[in-house]
Design a protein around this nucleic acid. Sequence first.
DNA 1: CACCAGATCCTCT
DNA 2: GAGGATCTGGTGG
Length: 195
Amino acid sequence: MEVFRALPPAFFDQPPPMVARALLGARLVRRVGDAVLAGRIVETEAYLSAGDAAAHGARPMTQRTRVLFGPAGRAYVYRLRQYALLDVTTEGPGVPGAVLLRAVEPVLGAEHMLALGGGADVRRVASGPGKLCRAFAVDLTLNGADLTDADGPLFLAAGPPEAFEVRVTPRVGITRAQAAPLRFVVAGSASISRP
DNA sequence: CACCAGATCCTCT
DNA sequence: GAGGATCTGGTGG
């Protein structure tokens, strides 16, 4: 079985586009009860810390967005309609940049993910930011969780060395700053939210 | 206190 | 490709 070594805090102390790109191929790991769920990250989006009208951090801090303004490497979990969405915070306190985790390919615990809902196709069980949170049982209680802690309930780990092609496209589902090329995708993956 | 927008998903046609 | 589900924080009266 793959060994999961948490990414260090320094990994997240760089601008969101760099973190978003570097997270492709990394592992999202979730411990829930006795089960361990893991996925290979295949789609991310960067939300800039300044000058990005689509970013939650573009507006003054509120109770909901306070994690965004805290330290890097934390889970920013919020709700959209009936779904939770998961971001990783980047850069230091006071700098609200983040990376949205949009899709992963199941690596471990696929059965468990399917049991949480999302259809019958393993490849598509976490092929979208809302579906990803459902498959990994990520909810608001994980808001603020330290994603650099390999002993915690949710963390990010380095993936094995591999070569893949990265595609950069505009972000999905937003109403402002739609043109900015800040979505990063592992080309050819069957688990991304859309081509 | 009322209204509403929203980084989604699923089910139709 | 369109529309509805469904809900919470943020904003303004």
